[in-house]
Write a protein that binds this DNA or RNA. Structure first.
Lengths: 219, 219
DNA sequence: AGTATTTTTTAGGTTTGTCTAAATTTATTT
DNA sequence: AAATAAATTTAGACAAACCTAAAAAATACT
């Protein structure tokens, strides 16, 4: 396993993310995301091309090679595992974990990450609801939607709570609504858009306001 | 709180360690420890001097200023907390933690370290038995000695197991001898140098061979 | 199609942290 | 105390990763 600089890793990770939206990534796009100048991007693309991590032809944009994708998924795995650790174990707020994980993700030691994964019990989603790649780079793909958009009788899994205010979290705690739980919408009430949902074989009614803050993935 | 590069941090940390042995640190000493050339050390000393982290006069060696010492203790705190985390939570072997902690120690986020410290329950010693500086840079100072050198009836705390072989660890587990435990030697048997010790208010007899692998600190 | 605009690349420079080789200072030896 | 050896510093170079300004290519516009 080769080693990459923090800078190279940030490029690979960011290209990966941009690639899922647009197939082809452009110099300016990447420059903006990385808060760097276009000239710097060109420099790095030449370098990553010689390392066979991106396909790049001058003026034509670029995309990751399959090797580049593999590396990027490894970085994303580290980032999201650390985010999960920070939120779950160290009790960081949901909106504080990203910044710290940006640093931790560059500590590259395979054994560390695999043991961390094991310690955390192989979590499938990070605190933002984004899927965590497993040891082989595989992850859940289902698009994330708000619970209020979930069609009736489709089973889904809670993967993300948008608003992390104390009040909302307390409310969720009380109703025992947790990330990872399986959920089905049984009825929708048009009067106030409240929902009747099934969770752990129990029926609950929740407000539209709450449903909008609960994000789920089809399962 | 200013920020330091990984390189600067490694210099500060290493000077700190060398300083506890020799009061004055020399260019060649530091070069050897850091696997760098003497010329590089001189360069960095000039830089650290302008930042008021070391006292340095050409050809005269150097030592940390009190500010430099404060920074160094912060880095050592991070290093040892991560070592503890790796051994205690992720079940790394005692002899594998240093290398990984060398990387983790440079992730600088005060909140991260303080929350980690709290999560680990403010450990006082790392898996090598070295004391962990607290949030103010204070740490246990007592010299570490082998249990076989501990005078009779002096209370001490176990802080380090030298030999981490499976057999020894099993043996310690069986006798419930753990790092952090309070221990007193009640009798020494000259025949085979075995010891009668008091641990958790129970009396045990242990061999000299075992006692030599158990390190303790007064207090 | 021809011009203007935007995007991207090239050329050359800067900073950080390293290096080698030569010069200088300090220490040791006779 | 002079000569030799060892330690340290200076001078000049280099790679990585960035930058600015200018040039070149691609795109958009009348």
């Amino acid at each position: 396993m080769l080693n990459f600089s923090t800078s190279e890793e940030n490029y690979l990770k960011t290209i990966y993310h941009l690639q899922t939206k647009d197939d082809n990534v452009t110099t300016n796009e990447l420059a903006e995301k990385l808060h760097a100048r276009p000239a710097s991007i060109t420099d790095m693309m030449k370098k990553l091309k010689t390392r066979k991590l991106v396909n790049y032809q001058p003026y034509q944009g670029f995309r990751l090679t399959s090797e580049g994708k593999k590396i990027a998924l490894g970085i994303i795995r580290r980032h999201r595992l650390w985010e999960y650790f920070l939120a779950e174990k160290l009790k960081f707020n949901w909106d504080e974990v990203h910044e710290v994980a940006e640093q931790l993700e560059h500590v590259s030691n395979k054994k560390l990450i695999d043991k961390l994964d094991e310690y955390l019990d192989h979590p499938k989603f990070d605190p933002h609801g984004d899927p965590i790649p497993d040891i082989n780079g595989k992850m859940e793909t289902g698009k994330q939607i708000s619970l209020s958009e979930l069609p009736i009788n489709k089973t889904a899994r809670i993967c993300f709570i948008a608003n992390q205010s104390g009040l909302l979290l307390e409310h969720l705690n009380e109703k025992k609504i947790n990330i990872g739980a399986s959920i089905v919408v049984k009825r929708k009430f048009n009067f106030d858009d409240s929902l009747e949902i099934k969770l752990d074989n129990k029926l609950l009614t929740i407000s539209d306001q709450l449903a909008k803050n609960i994000f789920v993935k089809h399962g």
